[in-house]
């Protein structure tokens, strides 16, 4: 138990520190790297809680895909982060204040909640397959009890895909495409123009 809590505090503190560094570090590449560190630590926290599937998901999706994408974007687009950051010092106090108030309120309300006295339905709702591992347990409900939600999620992804295509796809006239019909229907007269060229004059065209 003590080892677990030791690790918990380690991962938690590292993830907190690195997430603060994401926001404050001057170099955007550093920011992204800190973000990746945060994700790693979060994944570790999930493992500690026995949710290894979520941990792996976090690694694969957030680090493998999203964070790397961020890195590409940051490196390939020349964004002047200094100007974007300009307003920060001006707005930071208010932002911090508002954030602090919200934080305190959340903390107070969570601490003020007596979870022991909650109605018994809570335990019922917990996944009842304690003897099998987390991934399998998720799979067992995801495709049966929550199939509806799973399908909905699929639709959302479909919309996301269509949206991405719609917004980025442009018909550009400069791009040449192969048109089989055009090629087949082309005759000799359309393609070749024979001209007699006088010596020493060249063609006017």
């Amino acid at each position: 138990m003590t080892v677990l809590s030791l690790f918990f505090y380690l991962f938690a503190s590292v993830s907190l520190t690195s997430s603060v560094l994401v926001v404050v570090s001057r170099n955007p590449v550093h920011s992204v790297l800190f973000l990746i560190l945060t994700f790693f630590n979060c994944a570790a926290l999930f493992v500690l809680m026995g949710a290894e599937f979520l941990a792996m998901l976090l690694l694969v999706v957030y680090i493998g895909a999203i964070a790397v994408l961020f890195l590409f974007v940051v490196m390939m687009l020349n964004i002047d982060f200094a100007t974007l950051r300009k307003g920060m010092s001006k707005n930071a106090p208010i932002g911090v204040l508002v954030g602090l108030v919200l934080f305190i309120e959340i903390v107070v309300s969570i601490l003020g909640m007596n979870f022991e006295e909650l109605p018994n339905s809570f335990s019922e709702a917990q996944i009842t397959y304690n003897e099998i591992e987390n991934t399998r347990a998720l799979g067992m409900v995801l495709y049966t009890q929550y199939a509806y939600l799973f399908q909905c999620a699929g639709l959302i992804l479909l919309v996301a895909m269509i949206g991405a295509i719609v917004l980025t796809h442009r018909k550009r006239d400069t791009v040449r495409r192969q048109s089989v019909i055009k090629q087949v229907l082309r005759s000799r007269d359309q393609s070749i123009d024979i001209k007699k060229v006088e010596i020493g004059k060249g063609t006017s065209k």
Partner: peptide, 8 residues
Amino acid sequence: MLFGIAGT
């Protein structure tokens, strides 16, 4: 939060 309180 609600799930935390009510379990559903």
